[in-house]
């Protein structure tokens, strides 16, 4: 059996099986905050950050649950721990750096119900990644999420000043762009293998 190299894990999570464009994870924030480049970048950063944290948490919880023999509590533990970690981070950031909080903090509550975070935790467990692999996977997923968000935000900002037909405006247009981007990302298939 061929081992997945860390490089492949990263390329796979960020480009080939991009969380947004191939797995449809985190579509809600994707539709919501991709209107402005600035917010998109910040959201991407916040999501990557939370992904890294929750990746570690999920790794730990999974080990713990297997040890106590209660794997069926996986989902509920993941979501509860992620939710509380996010809240903890929010409080921590607010206390330590008000500037960072203003930049990132407002996105943190949004992230709790972002399926990309939970999806990441579930997938890394499913794939049986170790600690380092999990972190690389989280980094790749975050980078891919940010990339997709930033690309779409650029296009949407430009299309804000376009004579888009009324019926296409809004979510439909964003989905259309996402579809085209998703097709474009198919070009990355087979990379890094």
């Amino acid at each position: 059996m061929k081992e997945e190299s860390l490089w492949y894990i990263f390329i796979n999570a960020s480009l080939i099986n991009n969380f947004v464009l191939a797995y449809f994870l985190g579509i809600c924030p994707f539709l919501g905050v991709s209107g402005k480049l600035e917010t998109a970048t910040k959201m991407g950063g916040a999501v990557t950050f939370v992904m890294l944290i929750s990746s570690v948490c999920a790794y730990g919880i999974n080990a713990f649950l297997i040890a106590v023999g209660a794997p069926f509590l996986q989902l509920i533990s993941f979501i509860v721990v992620i939710a509380s970690t996010v809240q903890l981070v929010e409080m921590f950031v607010r206390k330590m750096s008000p500037a960072l909080f203003r930049a990132l903090g407002i996105f943190l509550p949004l992230i709790t119900t972002n399926c990309a975070i939970l999806g990441l935790a579930l997938f890394q467990t499913q794939k049986g990644y170790g600690m380092v692999e999990s972190l690389v996977y989280a980094l790749g997923a975050g980078a891919g999420f940010t990339l997709a968000l930033v690309l779409i935000a650029g296009l949407r900002e430009r299309l804000e000043f376009a004579e888009v037909p009324g019926v296409v405006k809004g979510t439909a247009l964003t989905l259309l762009i996402a579809g085209i981007l998703s097709l474009s990302f198919m070009g990355f298939a087979g990379l890094g293998g």
Partner: peptide, 17 residues
């Protein structure tokens, strides 16, 4: 075990909140 694990978890979380 399940009840203990989840009970503990929720207790911690609730405490935090």
């Amino acid at each position: 075990t399940a009840i203990a694990a989840l009970g503990g978890l929720t207790f911690l979380l609730a405490l935090m909140l």
